[in-house]
Design a protein around this nucleic acid. Sequence first.
DNA 1: ACTGTAATGCAACTATGTTGCAAAATTTAT
DNA 2: ATAAATTTTGCAACATAGTTGCATTACAGT
Lengths: 139, 139
Amino acid sequence: MTDAINTILKKSSLSVTPGRSAILQLFHQSDGALTHAVIEEKTGDQFDRVTIYRTLQVFVEKGLIHTIPSPDNSILYALCKEDCSEGHHHDNHIHFICDKCNTTYCLDHITTPYIALPNGFKTNQTDVLIKGLCAQCNL
Amino acid sequence: MTDAINTILKKSSLSVTPGRSAILQLFHQSDGALTHAVIEEKTGDQFDRVTIYRTLQVFVEKGLIHTIPSPDNSILYALCKEDCSEGHHHDNHIHFICDKCNTTYCLDHITTPYIALPNGFKTNQTDVLIKGLCAQCNL
DNA sequence: ACTGTAATGCAACTATGTTGCAAAATTTAT
DNA sequence: ATAAATTTTGCAACATAGTTGCATTACAGT
Ligand SMILES: [Mn+2]
Ligand SMILES: [Mn+2]
Ligand SMILES: [Zn+2]
Ligand SMILES: [Zn+2]
């Protein structure tokens, strides 16, 4: 399993280090999005804050993860499941944040809708963020 | 004009102070959304940072302004043009951020679309954020 | 004008994120 | 396998954003 993770790193021409392996594995193990703080905690504080910041940055640049605009003003990161590559993200799916358990899901199969804008406005990117109750919390 | 502003404050049962008047007037004068930093600058640094934070908080609580989730991780505030009141916001419009001039617009007449979610998921609130070029910058 | 209440300013603190640089680890070449 | 070249890491220092407690000041109702 760690081998698969390291293969991904090498495919993105990133050197394999304990920090990068652990963080990428963490993303593959969790179904929701992660914040810097959660990553720091779940890796048992073995890595420096700065290392985690830089790892997340490089993962975004390489198209391994993408950021999610959140209402509570802390950056969320999630795996790119589509064919994103270096400098080219294609994450046009919507995001869902559960009000109860606070998990953020990438709803990969629901694409962002087309929205007509007033005259003169040009759309580059559409982000949809839905808050509510997830399937687990809505029982 | 300052009278109109103060009337709004009194209607929300807020005491009228120089800071609140100035900040609320600033919102009524600008067509886009404002950040804490911009407010601090545009009021000529006459008010303490903390006062501005607390003023924005109380304006949100009273339904005078609403926050906008932004991708660059700084809270944006904009006037509520609808019938929002204390503890009850009804801002179901979409937001637009210009990539060039960085202005954030409330597109009040464009309501958020209905989006079908997977089984079990329940929508409480939908936020749509579109990035692109505004009418001024798209010439 | 007086008085009770609410808002302000200041200081201190927490949280989040960035940058420079030397030491350590990884990769590549020998 | 060893060594050189390149990257990555950790530390310190810094920057920005936001919060809290408390004494002082301003406001609103009488
Ligand atoms: Mn996503
Ligand atoms: Mn708005
Ligand atoms: Zn949930
Ligand atoms: Zn513009």
